[in-house]
Simulated scan of single mutants.
Amino acid sequence: MNHNDNLKNGQWSLPRPMTVQEFKKLGHFIQTEFGIKMPPSKKTMLESRLSKRLRSLNMTNFEEYRDYLFSLKGLELEMPHLVDAVTTNKTDFFREEHHFDILYKELLPEWMERYPEGGRIMAWCAGCSNGKEPYTLAMVLNEFGIEHPVFDYNILATDISRQVLKEAERAVYPVKDAEAIPPVLRKKYLLRSRDRNRQLIRIVPELRKRVAFREMNLLQDISFREKMDIIFCRNVIIYFERPVQEALFRKLCKFLEPGGYLFIGHSETLNGMDLPLKQTRPTVYRKI
């Protein structure tokens, strides 16, 4: 097909609507590859988001897009764009703030009692989006380290989307996004743009160097050199089918130290899953 067929008078025209069959094939691929549920109710959403990709590729229909996606070239070049189109990257600083209160006031002191000579905590933010969660965690762990000089930490932050990982590594955000950060921490851990008209902040280098970002599909084989003491996997599994959720958490438990803690989102539950975890507080679990 000639890619110029969809240009009328020099302007790109809308692709023809996605057929049910095209949606089923693309939806099945997305669910198999990324674990994200694609019920019929998501057809309009998928069609809307992928229309932007068709425009970028100068394509007129979803069948052409599907053929390109499933080609060797498409699997290499288009997959990151497909991930960005179908994933939801909603996140905030200090989202579900009670988790950070529990961590700072209860779990970290408990860890220090177990290891009075100190050491290093390893934390993992799975599904880190644009970095606000791992940087929040870094603020909390850094504050605890100031009070306990023998305490140290490192944070691994992973996501399936290359685009949000680039944003996370830059660590630049609109000033209004920082409103949820306590003022004392804002003053300590945020840099303001010299150009006040830009209304931007950036996380200080001291925290940025504590967080390592890595692209990761949680459904694929993953491995780490050492186990984690803390895992945040919040508001990630809500997009997965129940058997996929259980398989994912079983995988996370493999990388969690005995006595380590898993945090999940407030709308998520592990009830009925056969996992080596004990619930200690709502949405907080300890590996047994």
Results as ranks from 00 to 15, higher is better:
Ala247Asp: 03
Met228His: 11
Cys253Phe: 02
Pro149His: 08
Pro149Lys: 01
Ala85Val: 07
Pro39Leu: 02
Asn58Met: 13
Ser48Lys: 13
Asn89Arg: 05
Leu46Met: 05
Thr136Ala: 06
His81Met: 10
Leu248Cys: 01
His266Tyr: 12
Pro15Asn: 04
Lys188Met: 01
Phe29Ile: 12
Leu103Ala: 08
Lys166His: 03
Phe144Asn: 12
Phe93Ala: 00
Lys187Leu: 08
Lys254Thr: 07
Arg53Ala: 00
Ile160Lys: 08
Met18Gly: 02
Phe151Tyr: 05
Pro134Glu: 05
Met59Tyr: 12
Leu200Ser: 07
Ser129Trp: 09
Ala178Thr: 07
Ile121Tyr: 08
Arg286Thr: 00
Gln163Ser: 07
Asp159Ser: 12
Pro109Met: 00
Pro109Ser: 01
Leu256Met: 12
Ile146Asp: 14
Val150Leu: 07
Val172Ile: 15
Tyr104Asn: 10
Arg49Asn: 06
Asp229Arg: 07
Phe240Gln: 14
Arg55Asp: 08
Val86Tyr: 00
Leu218Met: 14
Glu106Arg: 12
Thr158Gln: 13
Leu26Pro: 03
Asp101Leu: 14
Val184Glu: 13
Met45Glu: 13
Val204Gly: 01
Ser267Ile: 05
Phe224Tyr: 05
Gly10Gln: 04
Leu262Arg: 11
Asn6Met: 12
Leu277Ile: 01
Ala180Leu: 13
Val184Ser: 04
Asn4Asp: 15
Leu82Thr: 07
Leu200Asn: 06
Asp92Met: 14
Phe94Tyr: 14
Ala85Arg: 06
Pro17Glu: 11
Leu275Gly: 04
Leu72Phe: 12
His81Ile: 08
Asn6Cys: 12
Gln245Asp: 03
Pro80Trp: 14
Asn61Arg: 03
Ala171Gly: 00
Arg194Leu: 10
Leu14His: 03
Glu78His: 10
Arg208Glu: 00
Leu107Arg: 09
Arg95Ile: 11
His266Pro: 00
Met228Gln: 11
Thr269Cys: 02
His99Ile: 09
Ile181Met: 06
Leu54Trp: 02
Phe70His: 15
Leu72Asn: 13
Leu103Met: 03
Met38Lys: 01
Ser48Ile: 09
Arg234Ser: 05
Lys37Met: 08
Pro80Gln: 06
Thr19Tyr: 04
Ile155His: 02
Glu167Trp: 12
Val150Asn: 12
Cys125Ala: 07
Gly272Ile: 04
